[in-house]
Design a protein around this nucleic acid. Structure first.
Ligand SMILES: [Zn+2]
Ligand SMILES: [Zn+2]
Ligand SMILES: [Zn+2]
Ligand SMILES: [Zn+2]
Length: 770
DNA sequence: GTTGTGTAGGGAAAAGCCCGGG
DNA sequence: GCCCGGGCTTTTCCCTACACAA
C-alpha cells in the first residue's frame, strides 16, 4: 500500500526550495538598484557602478582575489584601468544580480573580454557559443582561442570559489541569447512568474470561484487533520501557514511522510509564501494558523527531520475495515464496499460517449470531462487548463521551479515521481522493458515502444497492403484462397510469433534467438524478391498514381463498392467492442465473456481459410460470395440481442466469427475484379483509407445507442443493419447477377467485361502458381 | 541518425473524506 | 447521536509524445 517512492528508513530529508535562490538574488538586485548596503563603487571606463562586494566575490574569481582578506574590507572605490570596457562590464554586473545575460552581436566581444578578465568561466563559454553561432551562418568558424582577450592580471587563487557553486551556471540564458533573442522587455517567463504563482495560491485560498474551485473549497489549515504527505504540504489548499513561519524553519520537510503519520501533530505546510510581497500578503483571506502548526515547525526544525518525527506503527485501529480477499485495510466502511469492486470486476458506470466503464461514479464524472472538453482547473500563471487538479498541481511546479523528488543515490532532483523512478534504474542497472521479438532490453518504456514501432511494427504494416496487392496480381485463378491464406497467416503469425520467440530465447539465449529471427526475416527478403512486380499489359493503360486515383474516384462500381465496405466496416467491429459489455449486462463474468470473444476470433481465422477455398470453388462473381458472407454476418449480429442462453450465444459468436472472417479475404479479392489488377495498389489503398471511417464511427455510434436505449439491443441490430445495407449496395455491382459459365469462368474474364477495364489480361497463371 | 534520458500532459484506479438523510 | 450511502477530493500510478544531448 505504501508508496514505494519513500526510501526505506529515510524519515525525512532536506527539502530544497528552488525558488529561494532566485528570490534572494532578485532582492539583492533591488538593494543594488536602490543603493542600499552597497559597499563598493566600481569605476569602469570612468563610469561609477555601485555593487555589493559579497555578490562580486561570489560571482567572479577576479573580485574574489581582490576583496578577500582584510585588504579588501577597506576598498570603497575600485577602478579598473585598462580593464574591461563599460559596455562589456555592465551586462556582467546585471548578470550577477539577475542570472540573465544580455548579449548582442555588437556587445558580445566586449562582454567576452570582460568575463575573461573577471574569470567568469561560464559566461566566457556562453559568449564563445554566442559568437560562434552568430558567425556560423556566414560559414566562419570562430575558434575560441582566436577571440581570446588578454589574460587577466591575476591568477585565480586556490581557494577561489568553485565555479559550480560560486558562479551561477547560465545554460538556459546563454542558449536563449545565442538564439539571438535577448529581450529585456520580455524576460524568461519561467524566471519571472513566481509572484504570479503566489497569486494563484492566494486566489485559491480566498475561495474564488472558478479555477481552483476544488481546492479552494477546502478548509483553511485543518489543524485537527494530519496532512497526509509532501504533496499536501506543497499543495495550495494547505498553504495558509505562511505567516509566522520562517523560511529557515520551513526549509526542511520530510518527503518520506507520504504515508507515515506523525506524533507531533499538524505538519508545517507551505513553502511558497514565505516572502510574499507585502501587498499580496495583505490580501490574505484567512488568518494565519494557530500555534499548533508553529510548534510542529519548531519540533521539526530543531529535530532536523529525523529524531523529532516518528511514524506511528501502521495501527490496525486506524483502519478497522479489512478486505477478506486481499488484506487491504480501510478507515471507512464505505471504502471497503467500493474496494470490493476491485475483486469483482464490477463496473456499473458507463460513459455515454465512448462506452468506457468505471467502478466509481466520480471516476466516470472525471472521465466524461474528456468528452465535454471541460477543464475546470486553470493555471493562473500561464492560463493552461487541466481536467484534473492533480494535473494542475504537477503543472505549477514548472513555474515554481520546484523539483520535489531527489534521487537518494546521486541527489539529482526531479519534478515528477515517474522520472525519478526511471532515473533510479540507472543506478540499479535495471532494464525492465524488453522486446520479445528481438530480445533487446530497455530502461524506459518509451524506448520499448519506439523500438517496436520502428523496428517491427512499421515493417509489418508496410508489408501488409503491398503484399495483398501483389497477391492479387499474381493469383487470378485462386485469388480468394491466396487472400484467405495470407490473411490467416497474418493472424496466426502474430499469435504464434511471441511463443516461438520465447522458445528460441530459452534454447539459444537472446543473441542466438535474435540471429535466428534475423535469418527468418531475411527469408522475407528473398520471398519479397520473388514477388517481383509483374508488368501486366494493362499497367501501361492506367497511368501514374494520381491518374489512377482520379480515375478510381470516377469509377462508379468502385465507389459503390467502397461505400458498401464502409457500411460493412461500421457494423463489423461492434462485437469486438461491445460484446463483452453486452454479456456482462446479461450477467456474465468478465472472464468467460472475454473467452467467448476469443472463440469468435478463432472462428474468424477458420472462416478466412474456408472462405478463401470456397471463393475459388464456388462459381460466379466473388461479389456474390461477399454478399453472402456479409448478409450472414449481419444476421448473426442482429441476433445477438435475442440470444439469452449461453449455448445460443456461443453458437452466435462462432457464426459471427466464421462469417466475418470469411468476409475479409473475399472483400479484398473483389477489388481487382472491379478495378483491374493494374490499379490494384491504388484501389486497395483507397478502399482501406475510406472504409476505416466506418470502423471509426461504428463503436461510438453503437455506444450512443446503448445509452439512449439502455441496452445493447439497438446497437447490435443497427450494426447488423449496416452489414445488410452493405450487402444491398453490393448487389448494384456490375455483373452481380450475370450467369457466366461456371467452372470455365475465370475472374479476369469478369474484368474484361467490366465497363471500365477494357484491356484483356494476359494469361499469367504460369507465373503465379510457381 | 541512434540511443539514452528527462519533461510535460493526460487518463485512470482507488482510497480519503464530507455530508445529508433516515 | 449513529449509521449509511452518495458524491466529491486526493493520491498514486501509468501511458504517451516529445525534447535534447552524447
Ligand atoms: Zn481486497
Ligand atoms: Zn467516454
Ligand atoms: Zn501554468
Ligand atoms: Zn541518481
Amino acid at each position: 500500500m505504501g508508496s514505494t517512492a519513500a526510501p526505506e528508513g529515510a524519515l525525512g530529508y532536506v527539502r530544497e526550495f528552488t525558488r529561494h535562490s532566485s528570490d534572494v538574488l532578485s532582492n539583492l538586485n533591488e538593494l543594488r538598484l536602490r543603493g542600499i548596503l552597497t559597499d563598493v563603487t566600481l569605476l569602469v571606463g570612468g563610469q561609477p557602478l555601485r555593487a555589493h562586494k559579497a555578490v562580486l566575490i561570489a560571482c567572479s574569481g577576479f573580485f574574489y582575489s581582490i576583496f578577500r582578506g582584510r585588504a579588501g574590507v577597506g576598498v570603497d572605490v575600485l577602478s579598473l584601468p585598462g580593464g574591461p570596457e563599460a559596455r562589456g562590464f555592465a551586462p556582467l554586473l546585471d548578470f550577477m544580480y539577475t542570472s540573465r545575460l544580455r548579449l548582442s552581436p555588437a556587445t558580445a566581444p566586449a562582454v567576452l573580454a570582460a568575463a575573461t578578465y573577471l574569470q567568469m568561466e561560464h559566461v566566457v563559454q556562453a559568449c564563445h557559443r554566442f559568437i560562434q553561432a552568430s558567425y556560423e551562418p556566414l560559414g566562419i568558424s570562430l575558434r575560441p582561442m582566436e577571440a581570446e582577450p588578454p589574460r587577466p592580471p591575476t591568477v585565480p587563487p586556490p581557494g577561489s570559489p568553485r565555479r559550480s557553486e560560486g558562479h551561477p551556471d547560465p545554460p538556459t540564458e546563454s542558449r536563449s541569447c545565442s538564439q539571438g533573442s535577448p529581450s529585456p522587455a520580455s524576460p524568461d517567463p519561467k524566471a519571472c512568474n513566481w509572484k504570479k504563482y503566489k497569486f494563484i495560491v492566494l486566489n485559491s485560498q480566498s475561495s474564488q470561484a472558478g479555477s481552483l474551485a476544488g481546492e479552494s473549497s477546502g478548509q483553511p489549515c485543518p489543524q485537527a487533520r494530519l496532512p497526509s504527505g509532501d504533496e499536501a504540504c506543497s499543495s495550495s489548499s494547505s498553504s495558509s501557514s505562511e505567516e509566522g513561519a520562517t523560511p529557515g524553519l520551513q526549509s526542511r520537510l520530510s518527503l518520506a511522510t507520504t504515508t507515515a503519520r506523525f506524533k507531533c501533530g499538524a505538519l508545517a505546510n507551505n513553502s511558497y509564501l514565505f516572502t510574499p510581497p507585502a501587498q499580496e500578503t495583505s490580501k490574505q483571506a484567512h488568518p494565519p494558523p494557530g500555534s499548533e502548526c508553529l510548534s510542529c515547525q519548531n519540533c521539526e526544525a530543531v529535530a532536523g527531520c529525523s529524531s523529532g518525527i516518528e511514524p506511528l506503527a501502521p495501527g490496525d485501529e486506524d483502519k478497522p475495515y479489512k478486505c477478506q480477499l486481499c488484506r487491504s485495510a480501510f478507515r471507512y466502511k464505505g471504502n471497503l464496499a467500493s474496494h470490493r469492486t476491485v475483486h469483482t470486476g464490477e463496473k456499473p458506470y458507463r460513459c455515454s460517449v465512448c462506452g468506457a466503464r468505471f467502478n466509481r461514479p466520480a471516476n466516470l464524472k472525471t472521465h466524461s470531462r474528456i468528452h465535454s472538453g471541460e477543464k475546470p482547473y486553470k493555471c493562473e500563471t500561464c492560463g493552461s487548463r487541466f481536467v484534473q487538479v492533480a494535473h494542475l498541481r504537477a503543472h505549477v511546479l514548472i513555474h515554481t521551479g520546484e523539483k520535489p523528488y531527489p534521487c537518494p543515490t546521486c541527489g539529482t532532483r526531479f519534478r515528477h515521481l515517474q522520472t525519478l523512478k526511471s532515473h533510479v534504474r540507472i543506478h540499479t542497472g535495471e532494464k525492465p522493458y524488453h522486446c520479445d521479438p528481438c530480445g533487446l532490453h530497455f530502461r524506459h518504456k518509451s524506448q520499448l515502444r519506439l523500438h517496436l514501432r520502428q523496428k517491427h511494427g512499421s515493417g509489418w504494416a508496410l508489408t501488409f497492403t503491398p503484399t495483398l496487392a501483389c497477391l492479387s496480381r499474381y493469383f487470378s485463378q485462386r485469388r480468394s484462397l491466396a487472400m484467405g491464406l495470407a490473411l490467416t497467416g497474418v493472424g496466426i503469425s502474430s499469435f504464434a510469433f511471441a511463443p516461438l520467440f520465447q522458445w528460441l530465447l530459452n534454447n539459444y539465449a537472446w543473441r542466438g534467438a535474435l540471429l535466428l529471427v534475423s535469418a527468418l526475416s531475411l527469408h522475407l527478403v528473398a520471398c519479397g524478391a520473388l514477388l517481383r512486380p509483374l508488368s501486366l499489359t494493362e499497367d501501361t493503360a492506367v497511368g501514374g498514381p494520381w491518374a489512377q486515383i482520379t480515375s478510381l474516384l470516377c469509377h462508379g462500381p468502385f465507389l459503390r463498392y467502397t461505400v458498401a465496405l464502409t457500411l460493412i466496416n461500421t457494423g463489423y467491429f461492434i462485437p469486438y467492442v461491445h460484446l463483452v459489455a453486452h454479456l456482462q449486462d446479461l450477467g456474465w463474468d468478465p472472464l468467460p465473456a472475454a473467452f467467448l470473444l476469443s472463440v469468435a476470433a478463432i472462428s474468424d481465422l477458420v472462416g478466412r481459410v474456408a472462405s478463401g477455398w470456397l471463393g475459388d470453388a464456388v462459381p460466379g462473381p466473388v461479389a456474390r460470395l461477399l454478399m453472402l458472407w456479409t448478409t450472414l454476418t449481419g444476421v448473426s449480429l442482429a441476433l445477438f440481442p435475442v440470444a439469452q442462453a449461453s449455448t445460443t450465444l456461443v453458437v452466435l459468436a462462432v457464426a459471427y466469427g466464421f462469417t466475418s472472417g470469411a468476409l475479409t479475404p473475399v472483400a479484398f479479392s473483389v477489388i481487382p475484379e472491379l478495378v483491374g489488377t493494374g490499379r490494384i495498389y491504388c484501389g486497395l489503398g483507397l478502399v482501406q483509407m475510406i472504409e476505416s471511417v466506418g470502423g471509426l464511427l461504428g463503436a461510438p455510434l453503437s455506444g450512443y445507442l446503448r445509452d439512449v436505449t439502455g441496452n445493447y439491443t439497438a446497437s447490435f441490430v443497427v450494426a447488423g443493419a449496416f452489414l445488410l445495407a452493405g450487402s444491398g449496395v453490393l448487389i448494384t455491382l456490375p455483373h452481380f447477377f450475370s450467369c457466366i459459365s461456371l467452372s470455365t469462368s475465370r475472374p479476369q474474364d469478369l474484368v474484361i467485361e467490366a465497363p471500365d477495364t477494357k484491356i484483356p489480361l494476359p494469361k499469367e497463371e504460369g507465373l503465379g502458381e510457381n
